[in-house]
Design a protein around this nucleic acid. Sequence first.
DNA 1: GTCTATATGCAGATAGAC
DNA 2: GTCTATCTGCATATAGAC
Lengths: 195, 195
Amino acid sequence: MAREPGDRREIILQTAAALFARKGVSATTVRQIADEVGILSGSLYHHFDSKEAMVDEILSSYFQDIRERYAKVLEQETDARARLHALVLASLEVVEAHPHATEIYQNDVNYLLGFERFSYLRSAGRYVQETWLKVIEAGVAEGVFRKDLDTKIVYRLMRDAVWLTVRWFKPSKGYSTAKLAEEITTLFLDGLTAR
Amino acid sequence: MAREPGDRREIILQTAAALFARKGVSATTVRQIADEVGILSGSLYHHFDSKEAMVDEILSSYFQDIRERYAKVLEQETDARARLHALVLASLEVVEAHPHATEIYQNDVNYLLGFERFSYLRSAGRYVQETWLKVIEAGVAEGVFRKDLDTKIVYRLMRDAVWLTVRWFKPSKGYSTAKLAEEITTLFLDGLTAR
DNA sequence: GTCTATATGCAGATAGAC
DNA sequence: GTCTATCTGCATATAGAC
């Protein structure tokens, strides 16, 4: 199997992402990344300008994917309950596709926002929030969702519950991402109380 | 107002906690801590053995407080719904009392678990999980909570939603910690769907 | 594309004067 | 209890040979 050009670069990026996710960006050294790839640290700079450039590439493509998937959800679904479920599922699929990026963002946003180059993370976060709020507020307006809860608080609770699944959920044959999406949706929509 | 002995130490610890919470433990330097306190970095070592010793003290007292509050909840409440609500409220009160420690733990557990001295964080996390699971499973056994959801998943979703409030919730006159506890409890128990 | 070699700076930490 | 002064090591990053 022939290796594409850019393959090597991709391996470095994957290795770096795994380390950033596990120990944090700040605590991960370029030497550790190089060691794991099997080259010397100086050689990394043939592929990337800096450690931050690696993080940047990881997170940029991450948010690009989120935008695309969220846009599709808004296109395809109209029913409030179905839309919220689709948003949960799309997010879990993003987590599955980019577990390292998700973890890096969740753990290190505060740190990264200290760098000028990562200020776009603010607008990326805002976009996600606006998408969820649109769906939740439409549901409330239609009378499908409760009016007595603060929509922004509902969003934040769902957001943290959904994205933090990255820390403990690994899809398996017995328990798929789709099944987890079902469980999360019914918990938040129908509640834990037996009827 | 006379300053107690140990006051200075406490100020250093608070300053360090705020920095650790904002930028992460690894990215915070002892010099930054010292600067903010208004002394030189070397002087910190009169009060603490190392940077990690500061983190240790912050997190130890944090989990001690959690244990005490959780024990009280189990003592005082017996009804499943009331117990779950009390657990939510107790956790939010811990967040309010130790916002920095909460954030440090949430953001940096993975990194800290890389140090031998922080391995106790594993058992601390286990204790919290067991307490919640006890309450949730009792509710299911009593028929008050649904039987068709995975209790461990329900726990993890609630856990992340509750503890991550530290990132966005600041109690105010118009919106207290108690009110947020109500909102979280009714969302998880009764669901978002209008009836 | 990787290596050798190295610049440069800053990290955590210590010893002893004040 | 803080400062001065400093050790030691490791961090990111670069230049140029191979």
